[in-house]
Design a protein around this nucleic acid. Sequence first.
DNA 1: AGTTGGATGGTCT
DNA 2: GACCATCCAACTG
Length: 227
Amino acid sequence: VRVDRADGLRIGRIVEVEAYVGEDDLASHARFGRTPRNAPMYGPPGAAYVYRVYGMHRCLNVVTEPVGRPAAVLVRAVEPIAGIDAMRRARAESVGTRRATRVDGRDPDEALATPAEAFAAPAASGAALAAHARIAGLAPEALARGPGLVGAAFSVAVEESGTDLCAASSPLRLAIGDTVACSSADVMAGPRVGIAYAGEPWASVPWRMWVAASRAVSRPAGSRGLP
DNA sequence: AGTTGGATGGTCT
DNA sequence: GACCATCCAACTG
């Protein structure tokens, strides 16, 4: 995946995904049929489906099936390759604006006007400064190690939902990388995360897949620190 | 190292 | 009005 934003190019290798296929998949956003939000899932493959979760995080999906059959793959983790500083700034901005709002009671748009200011955050609260320092110290593999973190690191916007990820003119797109190489033996599969509500068989079907050797794969809460 | 609760607002019943 | 395809900080031990 690669994104061309104002502050430069960011590129990463997708190392973890989850598949959501069809309206009968009770874990899928398409389980209620077509709605304004999930409409891109019913559109042409290769498009983005971006949605907001828990009121704050953005998740990036890739539409995968022909028109009329709703399906998408959630990008759960990305191994940064280029634009790592920009990813750090984007991560700090997303956390910094939230903390500035909550802690200082300031308007987020005024509190941290630019990504650079967000990263430096000289006027931010102690809590915001701590968050920025933490992100500055993260290993590159930890910058997009989770679906919400991918959205933050690549500054994915819900307004980009439905855009073509395969067009060279798109700021956000998929591209064939240098290290495509991955035999099926290098890829592990297991149940999808955070969808227990769907019930069986959907809660257990092994449609989460990840590159076994990658250190950028997400970890369950409680074992999130770098080894 | 593992668990818990808070943030936060669109989306769908 | 309830529910999240989540992350983080603060807490326990």
